[in-house]
């Protein structure tokens, strides 16, 4: 029974996709230097802009691919789970997260990559992250109302601005290019 259910899990195509995409995510995080807390926090000290360079390149690559595939009818955006917006909870979450990021030197995914490169401090951060999740479950009865407040559904920037997705991607691309240019200048001088 145990063996057959394990085998069923092993051949579940979705879990195979999870493992394989996770594997590549891990390879690229490690090779990009995103398992290294010095590089991860560098942007907040204006010394190393690896994180915004990787993030913006990844976001634009995925966005181009996504809207290209849906434009060619190779996939439907309706079948995609869009990350819903809860305005104030996500702003508050971002503020607390930014402080935690600088204090610990990692975020959840990069702490796993950090541990995989032998960093034991990442293991301490991971224990903190799991404990923080538990702390949230404990506080949930008191903050549940706030957690569910300012729900905006699956709103996207094209929805919000009324612009064509490709116009939004174009604007973000130009902003990214300008940012990359400034970052390269600052890094070269530093």
């Amino acid at each position: 029974m145990g063996l057959t259910s394990n085998l069923a899990a092993a051949v579940d195509p979705m879990l195979l996709v999870a493992g394989v995409t996770g594997f590549f995510f891990g390879v690229f995080l490690d090779r990009g230097g995103l398992g290294n807390p010095h590089k991860l926090t560098g942007v907040f000290y204006f010394t190393d802009f690896t994180v915004p360079k990787v993030m913006f390149t990844a976001i634009l690559t995925a966005a181009c691919g996504l809207y290209l595939l849906s434009g060619l009818d190779l996939m439907s955006l309706d079948s995609l789970w869009i990350v819903p917006t809860y305005f104030w909870p996500q702003i508050t979450g971002g503020v607390l997260f930014g402080t935690g990021f600088v204090l610990s030197g990692y975020c959840p995914g990069t702490s796993v990559a950090g541990l995989a490169s032998g960093r034991l401090d990442a293991l301490v951060a991971m224990a903190g992250i799991a404990s923080g999740s538990f702390l949230f479950a404990l506080s949930y009865p008191f903050i549940g109302n706030f957690y569910d407040s300012s729900s905006m559904g699956t709103v996207t920037l094209p929805d919000l601005t009324g612009l064509d997705p490709w116009a939004v991607i174009g604007i973000l691309g130009l902003v990214a290019l300008a940012m990359f240019f400034v970052m390269e200048q600052v890094e070269r001088r530093g």
């Binding site: 990350v83 819903p84 809860y86 909870p89 996500q90 508050t92 979450g93 971002g94 503020v95 607390l96 997260f97 402080t99 935690g100 990021f101 600088v102 204090l103 610990s104 030197g105 990692y106 975020c107 959840p108 995914g109 702490s111 401090d121 990442a122 301490v124 951060a125 991971m126 224990a127 903190g128 992250i129 799991a130 404990s131 923080g132 999740s133 538990f134 702390l135 949230f136 479950a137 506080s139 903050i143 957690y147």
Partner: peptide, 18 residues
């Protein structure tokens, strides 16, 4: 590392992800 992790764990749940 631990307190930063605590904040991250808590705020990731509040924001519905990291």
């Amino acid at each position: 590392a631990f307190t930063g992790g605590l904040l991250i764990g808590f705020s990731s749940r509040l924001a519905r992800g990291c």
